[in-house]
Simulated scan of single mutants.
Amino acid sequence: MPSEASAKEGGLHYVYLLRSRADPRQRYVGVTSDLPARLKAHNAGESPHTSKFRTWGLVTYLAFSHRLQAEEFERYLKSGSGHAFANKRLW
């Protein structure tokens, strides 16, 4: 997992996929520029979308140099064809 310093210095933005350890059927896709802190926040119950199914494990992440690219890829993964792609290649 990237360090907080490398995320800030390199300006990277991450699209990440989480799976609930409590209920493995529950999955979550998000975007952040500080992956370790974001995962910690999910597991601390700070996100209303994920607090119910704590704890979360990181399945995979992709790094982008531009925030807009990361946000567009996150939106794609949440679309119908993006779900199919993620199910086949990422989960």
Rank of each mutant, 00 (worst) to 15 (best):
G30K: 03
A5V: 15
L35G: 05
L68N: 15
R54D: 02
K40V: 02
F64Q: 07
D23I: 08
K40P: 01
A63F: 00
A86D: 04
W91E: 15
S3E: 09
K78I: 12
L77T: 10
T50M: 01
E4P: 00
L17W: 03
F85D: 01
Y76S: 10
Y16S: 05
R67Y: 00
L77D: 02
L68K: 15
S79F: 12
Y16C: 01
W56F: 05
A86I: 07
H83N: 13
E72S: 12
Q26T: 02
H13A: 07
E9S: 14
L18D: 04
Y16Q: 01
E46D: 09
P24A: 09
G10W: 07
H42I: 06
L62R: 14
S81M: 13
F73S: 03
E9R: 14
A5T: 13
Y14R: 09
L62Q: 11
E9H: 09
A7W: 02
L17V: 14
F73D: 01
F85E: 06
L12T: 08
K78P: 05
G30V: 08
Y76Q: 08
S33M: 14
S51G: 06
L12W: 09
P36M: 03
S79R: 14
F73M: 12
Q69L: 11
R25H: 14
Q26F: 10
A84K: 11
A63N: 00
R21H: 09
F64C: 09
A41T: 04
E74D: 03
G11A: 02
A41P: 08
P36I: 06
E72V: 11
L35P: 01
R54H: 03
L35H: 08
A7R: 08
S79A: 13
F73V: 11
K88H: 13
L68M: 14
S79Q: 09
L77W: 04
T55S: 12
L90H: 04
R21Q: 15
S51P: 00
E74G: 04
E4R: 11
L12N: 06
Y14T: 03
R89K: 15
L35T: 00
A41I: 00
E71Q: 12
G57L: 01
Y28P: 06
H42E: 05
K8V: 13
Y61A: 02
M1F: 11
A84H: 07
Y76W: 15
